[in-house]
Nucleic acid binder design. Sequence first.
DNA 1: GTGGCAAAATTGTCCGACAGTCCGATTATC
DNA 2: GATAATCGGACTGTCGGACAATTTTGCCAC
Lengths: 241, 241
Amino acid sequence: MADLFAPLDDHPAYRQIANVIEQRIVARSLRTGDALPSETDLARQFGVNRSTIREAIRELETHGLLGRVRGEKRLRVTRPEPGQVSSGVSRALALHDVTFLELWEAMMAIEPVAAQYAAARRTPAQLQALVRTAARFKREVDDTAAAVSAVVDFFTAVAAASANQVLALSQAPLNLLLAPALTRMIDRVPQARTRILEAQGKIAVAIKLHRSEQARTWMEKHIRDFKRGHELEALNPKRTE
Amino acid sequence: MADLFAPLDDHPAYRQIANVIEQRIVARSLRTGDALPSETDLARQFGVNRSTIREAIRELETHGLLGRVRGEKRLRVTRPEPGQVSSGVSRALALHDVTFLELWEAMMAIEPVAAQYAAARRTPAQLQALVRTAARFKREVDDTAAAVSAVVDFFTAVAAASANQVLALSQAPLNLLLAPALTRMIDRVPQARTRILEAQGKIAVAIKLHRSEQARTWMEKHIRDFKRGHELEALNPKRTE
DNA sequence: GTGGCAAAATTGTCCGACAGTCCGATTATC
DNA sequence: GATAATCGGACTGTCGGACAATTTTGCCAC
């Protein structure tokens, strides 16, 4: 049964101010790139102290709605960068103790589709970027950290080539979660590196040739391999050294 | 070619402090539910002014890492709530002007899979919640706002029943973007309401009976309908009244 | 142990201040 | 005339202190 009265929570001034400015930004009344008035000026306009304004600004800054270009002093309205947003999401997921299986299922849902659209729509530049990360993996295959980073970048490149911001932004957080899991796995499962190398090659070719179906299928196999690898890793004893 | 020197960016004190505290939280050295020291105490520990601490805290608060239970004064370590996180993501996507097609493709990737796992793993309680939102849609089918909200909640309920936090969190932002698009569509495409009603029924039954494949298939049809509806809407003239 | 109460602590907000730095305009230089 | 050096103003980051409102705590009586 719903209560008759909702508890009223008084928002402190800094939050109210943050909300007001946020609404202006979302409503495009403040547009991307616009410079914000100075803190002193804002304090005057809102009729509060500068300290209060600063707290409000911090809020918007961490949301990625405000930022400053390097070396500049004044804040400007910014569009939240995918990297910033996704790192927040993956931190949240990490704190919720997501299992590898949960991560894997989500990857299985998203990555193949991204690959499929990437094959259909990639630009030459995107293809090139993708091929380069694949080459990087091949080159640095023995340096675990570099190899893992290359794998992650490969996924990112595929998502970027999909020309779908929603997919790309849904996919980005998965990468950050994948990295640690993959690091463990790649060291303990000998065949992992070869399989990844092969899969990346097949996927890259499919995307190059605009073969949507093949790109999706190979990406599916690729991801499925991760699960196999993870299961194998669980069986193998830790390397003790 | 790479520059010889990278630009050095000095992080202001409030950001450094925020980072330190954040790391402690992520590393579980500060655990969920723990109360944070008072601002004065933190200022002493970090050797900075209380104002600086406050700015740092605002940062962590908006990330959802700190929060306070209603009516309490002291801050405690909190796990970022999915709702909070996803609203940030969808705001970011909105500011990036995602198209309906992008949204649709992402839904098409995620929702059917969520339905599939929901059918496999839903608890009785989750099923009940899901059935209730379906019933709510049926009941309020003529109130556009309420109907749209019910549709969104139906998706949320399915994702929750999938027992996969990653999928659920990937799916949540899509809802917030779907709502406005759906509102326009449902008013202009007469058959939309009936189709949604039918699809929700089929999906609910499939999930009830643990029929994974059926759940996924029906969800696919359901989502596909959205695209059809969107195309029809584009053809139809706006209702002028 | 429980309830009640006064004292201490804490948060939200304000005020004023100052060093370091960025920006724009003015002036000096080639 | 174009460019380089210079200067003052504006702005941010940080500091110190202050105060009301409210929460938390410690204590006492029951």
